[in-house]
Design a binder for these strands. Structure first.
Length: 556
RNA sequence: GGCCCCAUCGUCUAAUGGUCAGGACGCGGGCUUUUCAAGCCUGCAAUCCGGGUUCAAUUCCCGGUGGGGUCACCA
């Protein structure tokens, strides 16, 4: 190797560094079958978990586990300006909460699982240095002393001359300095970055094979892109090449905003003498804004943040099901047949992913899925989930739920049983309070006046209402079956000219003032404050004699 | 602007060189029901535009349009 390059490398990295081969041996190829996928999710700790990251993570995990491979987590914390304290734990917690357990990666306690770590990029400096030093020694990279201001000026100049932008060819000032000049400048202690010396030509096309996009032609990279920033941290491009090679990733599955960087990455893999992984670029989930679409934005769209769905009380499974359905629309058929099956058993494929071209996030669809999932839960499980949600988002509701645990479970059991006709009025856990709060005396605050107002508003005569209620209380027995109870109601209805059934009323409209449904409204109103409630018989059962009578009695 | 990607109901999508272009969500109507939520039945609704190739194009090719991505010491 050239002595002058060696000197440059020594000035940049005076410390003694292991040879790149050391790492090759430290991280040997994985002992997996040839068809196994090694995938990773590699988020940046910016204090925010994007729904798109969850989508990508799910795809990665599914592919890995469907092939008996490995799915791991890597934290890409090379941008210290954007880093937010506590983000790594947020990422880990979110993945685990959504059942995306990773086989390798950092854990909450600062330890790591797996033997291809460290899995946090800021802890991998020695590794990056070793490879960069090697590149420097071979003249494949060089120090660049251009300041950000200089680069801005360059950009302006290129723009006004309608030239292609970037640090390449004749524009790459530092590239053309002699090694001796570079060494001299380095010794002055001036800030610098390390750039890759690109031998590519923009006129040359290269074929890029992508598992989702297919084989495409892209111009070769001719930019002398930065591989090490002035803070000595690697850029994404460089870290990607080193990490995914050394961690033996087989499939890099990531957002399609990376697609146009593939020539850079391929170039890097080649220069480093690494075998390139397979790539799969997926279209992001989008949102319609006016006439155009855009990626879900951290800034503008609350639903871009996974925490939004947790705060709203969406079941995790609903989010997962929704996302998988986006990957492969056959999922909904499969889910219908296998309502309780683990999603891992559903197969996804690149073939199907090819058809996804940036779906618009659809709340209606999510809500529908969510509703089905809640309808499929037992009252006990639902209670636990609602309670868990309330503890984190509505403390006072949580204490009401705790203080009335059995009552709350009974409420949730209404029209929910072995029959498939479960109530479907809850979309998310937070709906329970809104829909069923009237059951709880803590929230039910209809005074006599309000009740009377509602009754009058619905066209009832208050004196008659009192009589009907008295008749009901007299005849009502705790042990009444639904049939017995209902026939008693019909009997009372008869006394006041309410038809026993809609049909009866329709057949002789002039004989009746209304049907049993109209009369029953009285009870709905007094017990709940609303004319729209779950099944009345069940409500009465759940509320219990005491509460029913006291709510009815308020009027007399 | 350069380079790249994409294009089926409002949304997610299925399918094929010949189909009544299918399903799901949403929306409308009906039935059922003690209200509501459901459930069942049913309706409306799409192959971006223009050229080719072909007996036949939504499907293949070209052009246009539209949308998206990317061009940092961010990932």
């Amino acid at each position: 190797m050239d002595d002058i390059f060696n000197q440059i490398a020594e000035v940049v990295f005076p410390e003694s560094l292991p040879d790149p081969n050391y790492f090759e041996e430290l991280y040997p190829p994985r002992n997996l079958s040839a068809s196994a996928f090694v995938t990773r999710i590699a988020p940046s700790p910016t204090g925010f978990f994007h729904i798109g990251s969850l989508y990508t993570a799910l795809i990665c995990k599914l592919f890995a586990h469907q092939s008996d491979g490995v799915f791991y987590l890597r934290i890409e914390d090379t941008d210290k300006k954007r880093e937010v304290e506590g983000s790594t734990n947020l990422i880990i917690n979110t993945l685990l909460r959504y059942g995306l357990k990773f086989d390798e990666g950092p854990d909450k306690y600062g330890r790591e699982l797996g033997s291809y770590g460290p899995y946090v990029q800021s802890s991998r400096a020695t590794i990056y240095f070793s490879f960069i030093k090697n590149l420097l020694q071979h003249g494949k990279a060089y120090p660049c002393f251009c300041s950000p201001e200089t680069l801005d000026e360059l950009r302006v100049k290129q723009q006004s001359s309608l030239s292609r932008q970037g640090y390449f060819g004749q524009w790459a000032v530092c590239r053309h300095k002699t090694p001796e000049e570079q060494l001299q400048e380095l010794k002055t202690g001036k800030p610098f970055v390390i750039r890759f010396r690109s031998e590519g030509s923009f006129e040359q096309k290269i074929k890029v094979a992508d598992l989702i996009l297919g084989t495409r032609e892209l111009p070769e990279n001719d930019q002398d892109f930065v591989i090490m920033k002035s803070d000595k941290l690697p850029t994404y491009h460089f870290a990607h090449a080193i990490d995914d090679h050394l961690m033996r990733t087989t499939h890099v599955i990531r957002g399609d905003e990376w697609f146009s960087s593939v020539p850079i990455h391929l170039q890097l893999f080649k220069a480093l003498k690494f075998e390139a992984p397979k790539y799969a670029h997926i279209a992001p989930i989008q949102k319609k804004v006016g006439n155009s679409k855009r990626k879900l934005s951290k800034r503008k769209d609350p639903e871009a943040n996974i925490e939004y769905f947790d705060a709203e009380g969406y079941p995790k499974q609903a989010i997962l099901d929704y996302l998988i359905n986006l990957m492969n629309s056959d999922f909904e058929k499969w889910r219908n047949k296998n309502p309780n099956e683990q999603i891992e058993l559903f197969n996804i494929s690149f073939e199907r992913l090819k058809k996804c071209n940036g779906a618009l996030f659809d709340f209606d669809k999510l809500n529908h899925i969510s509703k089905q999932i809640i309808a499929g839960m037992t009252a006990g499980d639902l209670y636990e989930e609602v309670l868990k949600w309330a503890k984190e988002n509505d403390r006072s509701f949580a204490s009401v739920l705790v203080n009335n645990a059995d009552y709350a479970k009974n409420i949730l059991s209404i029209e929910r049983g072995e029959t498939e006709k479960a109530r479907k009025d809850l979309i998310k856990y937070s709906d329970m309070k809104e829909k069923f709060m009237f059951f709880f005396d803590e929230y039910f605050d209809l005074n006599k006046k309000k009740k009377e107002q509602i009754l009058l508003h619905n066209g009832f005569d208050l004196n008659e209402v009192k009589k009907i209620i008295n008749e009901f209380i007299e005849s009502f027995e705790d042990g009444d079956s639904k049939e017995v109870w209902f026939s008693k109601m019909k009997e009372i209805g008869n006394n006041y000219n309410y038809a026993e059934s809609v049909r009866m009323q329709k057949n002789n409209p002039h004989l009746f003032r209304g049907n049993i449904g109209d009369m029953v409204k009285i009870f709905r109103i007094l017990l709940s404050g609303s004319t729209q409630t779950p099944d009345l018989y069940s409500m009465i059962k759940v509320m219990g004699r005491q509460r029913v009578i006291s709510r009815l009695n308020l009027v007399s």
